[in-house]
Nucleic acid binder design. Structure first.
Length: 262
DNA sequence: AATAGGGGCAACCGCTCTACC
DNA sequence: TGGTAGAGCGGTTGCCCCTAT
């Protein structure tokens, strides 16, 4: 008995988000928060699945996101946590403020795994690999097996195999946290560096053109929020400090709790 | 200058977990 | 207690950009 789809898929848009969609979603979430994700797209006037909205917000639009490459310290922490937790990306992300599980997962798969292999470490077990293989073909086969093994491992671990001890952190916001504006357990500010902002722009606008936001919102400029250097703003060192304060004030005006951003 | 290939990242899919009735 | 719905998580896919030829 299959489950009902999370939402009506018919007529829903898929693929990259446009600047306009981003604007609608951010505007809606900032002014209303979300009661349940399923309703968000309807209320925000989006032809998207609620799940898609949640993902977009969590992985991309949340203003407390740090963008850009992981620092050395963060990378070390990820490796360390991965050795303890395995592919529990959300738990790992919970220890890295401003980072998302998706981001960490991608970084792991594209950078850290290679790095560890170069260092002669097995990215799955974090143990030194036997340096006995000289056949590159065998290496490739092994790599393929590694991938399979790691997915199997994680699939297995999902069902309880392996270290299932709960990461002692994380006010993991489960459902009880609904109706807050952001349930992110990540607590630190920062966000889109200009480079990521342009990356986002290209993601959002398939042509790669600069984001050209439509009319500003009544309350505030959403693009300003997204592109803002939150780290600087919140540390008081950035050029946009006043704007940040303004925005926070305006957020408060609409009942938005600054705490969840900090 | 044009093209092919690879890498990186955003987004989707499908499954599991949890809360509620 | 079992069923259902919603949310979250991890794996995978596909597209875009960059680099090498």
């Amino acid at each position: 008995m299959g489950r009902q789809p999370c939402c009506e898929k018919v007529g829903l848009k898929k693929g990259p988000w446009t600047a306009e969609e981003d604007q609608k979603l951010v505007a809606f979430l900032l002014s209303h928060g979300h009661c349940c994700w399923r309703l968000v797209p309807k209320l925000a006037g989006l032809l998207r699945c609620g799940k898609s909205c949640r993902l977009r917000w969590t992985n991309y639009l949340r203003p407390d996101l740090k963008r850009g490459l992981l620092s050395d310290d963060e990378e070390k922490l990820v490796i360390d946590l991965h050795s303890q937790l395995g592919n529990r990306w959300s738990k790992i992300a919970a220890r890295l403020p401003g980072r998302t599980d998706n981001e960490i997962k991608n970084h792991w798969n594209t950078h850290i795994r290679k790095k560890l292999k170069k260092m002669g470490l097995d990215p799955v077990t974090h143990q030194p690999v036997a340096a006995s293989r000289a056949d590159p073909l065998e290496d490739l086969q092994q790599e393929h097996c590694d991938d399979k093994a790691s997915s199997q491992e994680s699939a297995g671990s999902g069902t309880g195999a392996g270290a299932e001890e709960e990461a002692p952190t994380s006010a993991e916001p489960k459902q009880g946290a609904a109706c807050s504006v952001s349930t992110a357990s990540a607590v630190s500010p920062s966000p889109c560096s200009s480079s990521s902002a342009s990356a986002s722009a290209s993601a959002a606008t398939p042509g790669g053109a600069d984001v050209d936001w439509p009319d500003p919102l009544d309350l505030f400029q959403v693009d300003a929020i997204i592109d803002m250097d939150w780290a600087s703003i919140l540390s008081g060192s950035g050029g946009g400090g006043d704007i940040g304060v303004d925005l926070f004030d305006q957020c408060s005006d609409v009942g938005f709790d600054q705490e969840v951003w900090m």
